[in-house]
Design a protein around this nucleic acid. Sequence first.
RNA 1: GCCGCCAUCGUCUAGUGGCUAGGACACAUGGUUCUCAACCAUGUAACACGGGUUCAAUUCCCGUUGGCGGUACCA
Length: 496
Amino acid sequence: MIRTRFAPSPTGYLHVGGLRTALYPYLYAKKHGGKFLLRIEDTDRERYVPNAVINILKSLHWAGFEPDEGVKLECITDSGDCVVTQEGKDGPYIQSERLEIYKKYAQELVDAGHAYYCFCAPERLSELREKQQAKKLPTGYDGHCASIDPKEAEKRAKAGEKCVIRMKMPKTGETIFRDNIRGEVSFKNELIDDQVIMKSDGYPTYHFAVVVDDHLMGITHIIRGEEWISSVPKHIQLYKYFGWDVPEMAHLPLLLNPDKSKLSKRQGDVAAEDYQKKGYLPEAMINFVALLGWNPGTEKEMFTLAELIEEFDLSRVGKAGAVFNIEKLDWFNKQYIKKLSDEELAERSRPWFDESGITTMENFTEELLKKAIVLERERVTVLSELPDAVKFVFRTPDYPADLLVWKKSSKNEVKNVLPGLAELMNTISVHDWNREKLEEKIVEWIKEKEYSTGSVLWPLRVALSGQEKSPGPFEIAEVLGKDETLARISSAADRV
RNA sequence: GCCGCCAUCGUCUAGUGGCUAGGACACAUGGUUCUCAACCAUGUAACACGGGUUCAAUUCCCGUUGGCGGUACCA
């Protein structure tokens, strides 16, 4: 049974890079009928941010995929309130709740002579590092405390002297492993540090906790970011000391800023929730992010989550970093907005309307809102643009009088056109008031009067929308209804 | 500094020991059109560099360069 995991640190929000690092192991597990777990790696108390766990979980929930096991979100459907829970037989799944476990395994290593207490002060360590750098030597711990008699060291540690536990790395040979994405990778053991595995505050370091947890939780495939690849030898050594099987590994290429540096804040939004707030659809986000570093080898590029599960394959994950390119995301988002039915679109854009104040406007009705959305749906890239785009429908537009004059027309012509148009449109019954009929009548009238199309349609459209750019006049008139349309035309006529 | 990973249009990428090096986004032009969006058509644009290996390299090998990651009692 395949078991994969996503193991974020609760230092804030879910990074879009993190979203993809979560997605791939999820897809892999699902494709093979396995389980996807979520573990929280909160062993750094300095960087802990309250609410980070629930934020991360909520972003995952938004994205549309959730852990089968481990730390989960439990939502009370009535109130919409959510709480963090844990589920599964290998828990707890939050590392700060597993301290006793790490302590036990660390002790095992010390007893076996594979790890030792280290009493070196941080100052000594940084001094050492500086010296090594100055001499252009590889940096690393010099093994100073490795030579202390174990019994003596144990005594000092028990007496409460401040210390850490370090693992012993072999000083010769090399560690070779096979990465599912990169192939064979090797490191010289002598260059690898006697890594701290237990910190002086009693917490394990990442390197120790991942190994212990991945093993205890039965993880079969470690799929994570490339930033971890150089610490794999340490991890493998720990597996060896414990006599455990090393899981399969796959190190994913990183997500990059447009300037190719590692994707970071500063150059745009990096939190999944930022994109959620802007009105990117989760299905667009998932689709986009899935294709950053993976492709199916065909020319298909629109994928639902189910299709991704079906087609995902680690062997088709690339090795090079990928720039997070907003334009492509925008394109995906438009595509997915297009796929939504009018009803779905109205429902899903509702939060932005509630925020906008439109719903409290005088002539607001649900019916009118739905029609207005249909008018603008092809013109927005994110849902948050909708309220603004649609506003003109609900209130009398304000615009400079000059705008009414088409570039190839004149003020005088507009003065004639508008009243004539009003007169004509007044003859169209409410029953016939739809875009097709309006277009038919107005086009006919234009021909009859020998106007050019633009000199009529432009002022009509501006009179109705108040905007230089907008949907076509017939559609707007239909949505506005006869009374409002005529009112807007006559007020425009007065202003010319 | 040291170690590791990586390298095809601006971006995401496909691909092969012999191809007019393909697609998508973006961009440009044309069409449609009162405007914008959408849509259709067309176009510009890439194998980082230098050595090998080979009848033949974008493809295989080595080096260089560049980018990124790691080098913590952070993950």
